[in-house]
Design a protein around this nucleic acid. Structure first.
Length: 131
DNA sequence: CGTGTGACCGGCG
DNA sequence: ACGCCGGCCACAC
């Protein structure tokens, strides 16, 4: 079966992107679902999400999904997703360069130089914790 | 249609 | 310890 189109057309005027909800086989929906389940004060990585979503080698797409995610409804805590080293590689896509780090700090995550402190400790692995 | 481009990752030199 | 490259999938042009 062919994979369904995942994101509906972007509204040229408003820039609004509406995620498809009723596509059970949609990679995006799975990604969004996982990201929404990340507990406060924990973080995970693009790769881990991709792996759990069934496309281990498609971590890049998870980042792409996050790009659409910050206009998605309900809101998605995209700031809890970092790269495999705990680096805040996505911070440039937030309103301000420090917003991502600020959001994390407000949840009790320590961030230093765009790097999550004790990344291994607070790392939340969907393949283990989301059964 | 083909091509380029990602908020990535793992492997190899 | 680097840096580079290929792979993955979807989208824009």
């Amino acid at each position: 079966m062919k994979r369904q189109k995942i994101i509906q057309t972007r509204n040229k005027r408003t820039g609004f992107i509406k995620p498809v909800r009723n596509a059970s086989d949609s990679f995006f929906v799975i990604v969004y679902d996982i990201v929404r389940r990340i507990p406060k004060g924990r973080v995970t990585s693009y790769g881990a999400i991709a792996e759990f979503a069934g496309a281990k080698l498609s971590a890049r797409m998870v980042g792409w999904a996050m790009n659409a995610a910050h206009v998605a409804i309900p809101s998605i805590p995209a700031h809890r997703v970092v790269n495999r080293n705990g680096l805040l590689t996505g911070r440039h896509h937030f309103g301000t360069p420090t917003l991502m780090a600020d959001l994390l700090r407000s949840e009790g995550v320590k961030v230093k130089d765009d790097q999550v402190v004790d990344f291994k400790k607070i790392f939340w692995d969907p393949t283990k914790e989301l059964v």
